[in-house]
Amino acid sequence: MTQRPHHRPMLPGDRAIEAGSASVDPAELVEAADRAATLLVRGAHDSDDDGVAERLLHLADTEGIETIAEVWSSSPGDTLAGCLWRLYLLRSWVYADPVGVAREFEAGRTRAPVALVVAGVADPPGPEELKAMIDQVLRGIAEGEFADVLFRAAAFARVVATGRAGIASVDHHDVTRMLGLAEQLEAAGHQELHHGLA
């Protein structure tokens, strides 16, 4: 008797979703993703509900980063949806490897002092301090200006990219990716500041 290869069991409703998604216009999916991002960012900022910031912060925890990726990962970096994807990806990475992130941040902070000030990390920047910092940045979606959120996240990513560049064991592509993320977030911050992201 041959053994069947192991695969992830389909959840109830998976077939219905697959069947339904085949008939959905990709442009409609993009529009829905953009609309959801707009409601999250603009609606959260205008809300008087103190719990909104916490719910936004833990969205990736409750829904899963994979679910968020399905909705927003293909969105350009100069859109609200694209920015949210990049912010949640950054938080997910910090939580997945806080010790490694702290090591890279420590290596970069002496070379990128201006970015360090903008990032606003406690000194010394240990794993728990970095997790607290990234959470504070994401809470800013509801509690502050979205441009500030983007600039702080960009500064953090730039310090980490600088740190990675100085660590011999880190792959050059990882440095390039983190620097690219920093540049995308910073550019989006300027666009939000001057024209407003959509």
Rank of each mutant, 00 (worst) to 15 (best):
R111N: 10
T162P: 03
A122K: 01
E70F: 14
Y88Q: 01
L56V: 15
R55D: 13
R91D: 02
M178A: 07
L57V: 04
G82M: 04
A155G: 02
A115F: 05
L179Q: 15
F156Q: 02
L80C: 05
M178V: 07
P98E: 01
E183G: 09
D14H: 11
G13A: 04
W93V: 13
A182R: 05
R111C: 10
S74C: 08
V94S: 03
E104T: 09
A187G: 11
D49H: 09
H58L: 15
R42E: 06
L193K: 03
P98T: 00
D171V: 13
F146M: 02
T62R: 14
D14N: 08
L80D: 11
G64Y: 01
V99A: 07
R42S: 08
A147E: 07
A155V: 05
H7C: 03
A102E: 00
C83Y: 01
K131L: 12
D148C: 04
R8M: 05
A154R: 00
G51F: 15
Y95M: 09
G13F: 07
V137N: 01
D171P: 07
A165S: 12
H194Y: 07
G163W: 00
A154I: 05
A147V: 04
G51I: 15
T62S: 11
Y88P: 01
M133G: 14
Y95H: 12
G51T: 08
E54I: 01
A60Q: 11
V121W: 00
H195Q: 14
H172Q: 10
S92W: 08
L56I: 10
Y88K: 02
S47Q: 09
D135Y: 07
S21P: 12
I134G: 00
G43L: 00
R35C: 15
A112R: 04
E143A: 05
P76Y: 12
L150H: 01
V114E: 13
A69M: 02
P9R: 11
V118F: 04
P113T: 03
D61L: 06
P113Y: 14
T38V: 06
A119S: 01
D14I: 09
L59W: 05
R8C: 05
E145M: 10
I134E: 00
M10Y: 14
G64E: 05
G64W: 01
A115K: 11
R158G: 08
A22W: 13
Q184M: 12
L39T: 14
D171Y: 15
A102I: 02
E66V: 09
S23K: 15
E186S: 14
D34E: 09
D34C: 09
L197K: 02
A155Y: 03
R158H: 14
H195Y: 14
I141A: 03
W85C: 13
A182D: 00
E28R: 15
G20T: 11
G100Y: 00
D97V: 03
A142S: 12
D46S: 13
H173W: 10
G126R: 07
I68C: 04
H58D: 15
D61C: 07
D49A: 06
